[in-house]
């Protein structure tokens, strides 16, 4: 592809049924990319989303079955991936601490989805993009990965691993034309957070999607979205551990 992600022709979005991913897909469809691939587990739901984008924007949309809990099925994606200009990896699950601690299988599943699958997929994509001498991979991590908190550390740990991985991959790709954006959203109003405290005050998925696409266009390194989370997390990281361990946040 051209070095400019604004002109991306082939866009892959994983976890495409999620609220943020849907909004991102809408933006690329509106922009009129040559080929938009929506990947996820629930292909029936994805077909509905694809029909929506085709009807609204006459977009070229494909649906691809992808189950991140089965890392080996990431290979399924391989067939359609001879060229990808922009990949937005949005899949993820969030287990409460309690469930993660008491249910090792579920915990392992969360690690597979939130971390292992990303490494397999991103390496593959990076390889393809190097061959095409350019591309952008956006990785949806979370502010939860910036510091382990007593209330949500199992989920946070998977995101911490993902952040470190994405940051490292960006370093390795430097100079190849391939770029990695580490995206750290704060809480967003989506199905994942429905019913949680403060849901009303959470960020709007459309706004978050806009910022993510802008960050991809500008090949930004790390995006906190909404932007205030950069400062909130800076403060949270600066709290000495002797105090932090006593906080129930």
């Amino acid at each position: 592809m051209t070095q400019n992600p604004r002109n991306a022709e082939q866009v892959l979005i994983t976890g495409a049924t999620s609220g943020i991913a849907r909004a991102i897909a809408g933006m690329y469809a509106k922009r009129g990319v040559g080929r938009l691939i929506l990947a996820g587990r629930d292909t029936e739901a994805l077909e509905q989303d694809a029909a929506n984008l085709r009807t609204r924007h006459n977009a070229e949309v494909e649906v691809c079955k992808f189950d991140a809990s089965q890392p080996e099925t990431c290979g399924v994606l391989q067939n359609g991936l001879e060229q990808i200009d922009v990949a937005v990896l949005c899949h993820g699950v969030m287990l409460g601490n309690e469930q993660a601690i008491t249910d090792p299988d579920a915990h392992r599943g969360m690690i597979a989805v939130n971390y292992t699958s990303y490494t397999l997929l991103a390496e593959k994509l990076a390889g393809i993009m190097i061959g095409a001498s350019g591309g952008v991979i956006a990785v949806l991590s979370s502010v939860a990965g910036d510091r382990g908190r007593g209330t949500n550390y199992c989920y946070g740990a998977t995101k911490a691993a993902l952040t470190a991985y994405a940051d490292g991959l960006r370093g390795r790709m430097h100079g190849t034309g391939v770029h990695v954006v580490t995206v750290k959203p704060g809480p967003v109003r989506t199905a994942m957070t429905a019913g949680m405290d403060g849901y009303e005050k959470m960020a709007d998925p459309d706004q978050v999607a806009k910022q993510i696409v802008k960050a991809i266009d500008r090949r930004k390194d790390i995006l906190y979205t909404p932007g205030k989370w950069r400062w909130i997390m800076a403060i949270i990281r600066a709290i000495p551990e002797t105090i932090f361990k006593r906080l129930t946040i």
């Binding site: 049924t17 609220g19 739901a45 509905q48 109003r189 199905a191 019913g195 949680m196 849901y199």
Partner: peptide, 28 residues
């Protein structure tokens, strides 16, 4: 599906009442 507690009103802003709000994002 889990509801979110919200205070809602009509466009007339009265009355404002507490409701359990469900927000399905797809038909299923």
């Amino acid at each position: 599906m889990r509801p979110t507690r919200q205070t809602l009103s009509g466009w007339g802003n009265h009355p404002r009442v507490p409701c359990a709000v469900y927000a399905p994002d797809r038909a299923a």
